[in-house]
Design a binder for these strands. Structure first.
Lengths: 285, 285
DNA sequence: GTCAATTCGGAATTTATATTCCAAATTTAT
DNA sequence: ATAAATTTGGAATATAAATTCCGAATTGAC
């Protein structure tokens, strides 16, 4: 009995509060437990990646001591304790699958809430991940390529269409000449024919890549039109024909991809292009 | 025999070389293996932290496929493959927050970078704020109102149009009957006339509220059609005529509003409605 | 110094996870 | 169109890891 639920209280939900509890409150711990706790706070990465056995050895304690330590703080076991350390590294909040199953387990009190937080979580993590992954040089070059264009052709179908719609709105506001390749009357291919190398194109396409988008992008490529793409993987057929491409790893939830990160990127691009042109006008080389 | 040591060569020792090998050499992989590889490159964190089973589910493949993928690259098994992804996270010590402040400090060196991080920051804060502000009951009620509707009318112009476009896409995918009120030929008012109290409407409008959106919303309200709105303040003319409304405080950057939070909300709503209907069918009261 | 309470180590057990294998399905070659 | 080769899904198995349990050691109280 002595080992279980020492505190009764809820366990710290993140690394920082765990650390605070150890450092601050001077929770009285016996020798080995203190030793293990000290090791954990000093080597959080080890806890995140190691196994109970490997960590135990590194900290010179027994695996069972680690389990006891976890219990001491109110966690269900070592594995539960360990997730706190994993979440710390994974910049996103608890993975959606885990969170979802947790909610499902904890008695479907509010399935709506799960949806809500699922989608917000996915959006948040997409944005954080993308901000980390994007290379500033790429962004700068994209602005140069698109900024120098006479007319910017916008290619997107289906899921990505709304992004293009938003881009078109921003472009209009910013006075950037553009042409959507998304008509409902099937004249897109003809529209594309008008493009010249002095123009540029921006294509957006995600995983089940819409066949038409590809066709249009290929046609433009064949005509020597510079192409900037936003897509979701190096396997995308867009990648190989693009002058430059951005990889957007949108998290999905319930099978629906967030578009939040792509939205932020397209907005940044459009304002970037406007800025670029403003500068070119003021200081024409 | 076929499964083992496909390449014979030594496996990539770190994430970058693995990625290079996949992207560059065009290693020809069969469908499922390619699918798994794409998932791995897009969600490296998941690989690092997940289990074969959880990753397999997220990537829509079998656990055995992951083992095969690992073999394909010359690794001993999935676990070996996984360590590459773990190492990648281990090496990348600086936390997200730290990195951001670094960027801010070394600021104004690249004005493009400022744009980029500005928009991403705005998106991020919008999402966090909204997730905090939203009331779960409201969300639930919105789903009930819209879920019970015969046809859902979607009203949005200008800035918000792209959101509606995305909603329309999602609704189509989910088999939810809807009608966009956004035609380019000026028959919107007539479209709205067809709405009945057994339908419902979803209106989205932000600060310089588009006059047409308001007209349409008022007409629907007058006809007794329940109205759910997404808008940006209690002073919005939409608020007073809505059955229910959400306040979305989108942060703006350089005068352009992020739509990330609204995007997340609309996606959550659409899937919520689909779920609601699925339940109603199974358990008709 | 003795006894009771607590803590600890380590083996035994349970649980989770990776891996293998085979039949079915798909693709490719003829 | 048919056969051979490859790929795949999923159950069965093997492996590894976490957890429990109990006797031994340590600590603290009197």
């Amino acid at each position: 009995m002595a080992d279980l639920d020492e505190t009764g209280a809820v366990p710290p939900a993140d690394f920082e509060s765990l650390k605070a509890q150890v450092v601050g409150n001077h929770v009285k711990l016996p020798k080995r437990l203190k030793q293990a706790a000290a090791y954990a706070l000093e080597n959080p990465d080890e806890i995140a990646f190691g196994t109970a056995a490997s960590i135990a050895q590194a900290a010179s304690v027994q695996p069972s001591t680690l389990v006891r330590l976890a219990h001491q703080f109110g966690y269900e076991g070592f594995s539960h304790f360990q997730t706190i350390f994993k979440e710390r590294l994974r910049l996103r909040t608890p993975s959606y699958e885990e969170r979802l199953t947790q909610i499902e387990k904890s008695g479907d009190a509010a399935p709506e809430a799960a949806l809500l937080h699922g989608f917000f979580g996915a959006a948040r993590s997409s944005i954080v991940k993308m901000e980390e992954a994007i290379r500033e040089e790429d962004f700068k070059r994209a602005i140069e390529v698109l900024g120098a264009a006479d007319t910017i052709y916008l290619i997107a179908k289906r899921r990505s269409y709304s992004l293009t719609a938003h881009l078109a709105y921003a472009f209009s506001k910013l006075g950037i000449r553009h042409q959507m390749v998304a008509s409902t009357n099937g004249v897109d291919m003809e529209t594309v024919q008008f493009a010249r190398p002095s123009d540029a194109a921006l294509a957006i396409s995600f995983s089940p890549y819409a066949a038409e988008s590809l066709e249009h992008a290929r046609a433009l490529h064949a005509q020597g039109v510079p192409l900037v793409s936003i897509t979701d993987s190096a396997f995308s057929p867009l990648a190989s024909i693009s002058t430059l491409w951005f990889e957007v790893a949108e998290a999905d939830f319930a099978g629906f991809r967030s578009l939040s990160a792509s939205m932020a990127l397209t907005m940044a691009l459009s304002v970037g292009i406007a800025e670029y042109r403003r500068h070119q006008q003021n200081e024409p080389e």
